[in-house]
């Protein structure tokens, strides 16, 4: 908002960071900013190709689901979206829910990306936040102010994957946690009924 305000804060934060670097031992991260960035570079290139492929809606959803499964930690996102009930769910239920969830995400967010035809998403930077990497990108739409997309990347699933996506600061993970929670409430906590709803939703 306020440039002078932010730059003052940045300077202060920068000073604090330098101080911490000097006094603290360097923490070693398994996943580097460069690795996180190249993962998202690849994912973004594939998303750009789908958005601008001119393919049918149905074909685009299929492509998005493939990208989502390849680059996102779908089991962790699904488990987080389900919340505490994931603990009491059976392995079979979790597998069915995760599968339904992946399709739902592809349809729901694929629909939004359809509005982005002609948009170019560009990775602009990466940085370490807590124990993960934030890869920042900008989506430039014709005739509209560009908007910010951030991918949260971690290797703690065993491979490099993103586990959250922030669009103008709005977290996909938190949004889906609220949404799936509401869908489960509607079904009185019945996970099997929820799975059927998720298969149709989006």
């Amino acid at each position: 908002m306020s440039d002078t305000h932010i730059s003052r804060r940045t300077v202060l934060a920068g000073g604090a960071a330098l101080f911490l670097l000097a006094v603290l031992p360097r923490q070693v991260f398994a996943l580097t900013e460069g690795q996180a960035r190249s993962l998202i570079d690849q994912a973004v290139a594939e998303i750009n190709a789908v958005i601008n492929s001119g393919r049918s809606e149905g074909a685009m959803y299929g492509e998005f689901e493939k990208i989502f499964r390849r680059y996102a930690d779908v089991p962790t996102i699904a488990r987080t979206a389900l919340g505490p009930p994931a603990r009491s769910a059976s392995a079979g239920q979790m597998q069915a829910f995760t599968g339904a969830f992946a399709g739902y995400m592809a349809r729901k967010y694929g629909k939004r990306f359809r509005d982005f035809v002609g948009t170019q998403i560009q990775v602009t930077g990466a940085r370490t936040v807590k124990s993960f990497q934030e890869v920042q990108a900008v989506a430039k739409m014709k005739g509209q102010a560009p908007f910010a997309i951030s991918f949260m990347v971690s290797d703690r699933s065993g491979s490099d994957k993103f586990f959250d996506l922030l669009i103008e600061g709005i977290s996909l993970l938190k949004s889906e946690r609220a949404e799936i929670g509401a869908m489960l409430d509607r079904r009185g906590g019945n996970i099997d009924a929820l799975i059927q709803d998720v298969q149709r939703a989006g």
Binding site: V129, F132, E134, Q136, L166, E168, I170, S171, L173, R177
Partner: peptide, 21 residues
Amino acid sequence: ESRRFRLTGQGSAENAYDPYE
């Protein structure tokens, strides 16, 4: 979330939920 993002810039990753923790 979008309001806080607009007021503080890219800092929202610090408030991101860490599912592995």
